[in-house]
Simulated assay, not measured.
Amino acid sequence: MGAQDPEQIDGLAWVRERGLGALADRMGIEFTEFSARRAVGRMPVEGNTQPVGLLHGGAYVVLGESLGSMAANLHAGPGRLAVGVDINATHTASARTGFVEGVCTAIHLGRSITVHEIVVSDESGRRCSTVRITNMIKELP
């Protein structure tokens, strides 16, 4: 896994240094807790809606992928890169206002594959979407 154990790294400092990327920034995503095993982030509904005022289904997926891919990259360690190879989402409710929060939990942290589940809930705690992402870890050239 590289020179430093990912469990010993200050995850939020690592994220601040690396950045979340232009799309996550544009959507207003921010992380509030971060490690390879568990990551938590939030995103505003406003600005990320469908024409009918519901949070866009793709926005749930962007939040989930941001959390899961970043957690996989922390797990990968220096000199390695995690890239998404599969993502799926099941939407069970719709947020209209406020923020949604994603809680990302590692299901599998292997040497070459990671799997994370992200539960996205509205401000009342109602589950709106469940996202699962699989990342492949590879050596940087």
Rank of each mutant, 00 (worst) to 15 (best):
T90P: 06
R127I: 11
A106M: 08
G102T: 12
T114A: 07
G58S: 02
A95F: 05
R26I: 00
R16E: 11
T49G: 00
R26G: 04
F34I: 11
V45H: 11
S66C: 15
I118Y: 01
I9V: 15
G53W: 05
H91N: 09
L23Q: 12
N88C: 07
F34H: 14
E123G: 00
V52Y: 14
D122C: 13
H91W: 09
D25F: 00
A59G: 07
N48D: 05
R132N: 06
P44I: 00
E7I: 09
M136L: 13
E117W: 04
G57Q: 07
A82W: 08
G41T: 08
G11N: 12
M43N: 13
R18Y: 00
A76W: 05
A13T: 14
G77C: 12
S112F: 01
E33K: 15
N88F: 02
A39T: 05
E30I: 01
L12P: 12
G84D: 06
D5G: 07
G11T: 13
T32Y: 05
H116F: 04
Q4G: 00
Q4V: 15
A72T: 10
M1F: 03
S121D: 01
G41A: 10
V85I: 14
E30A: 11
G77H: 08
Y60K: 01
A36P: 14
M27Y: 01
G53D: 02
A106H: 07
S35Q: 10
A36V: 12
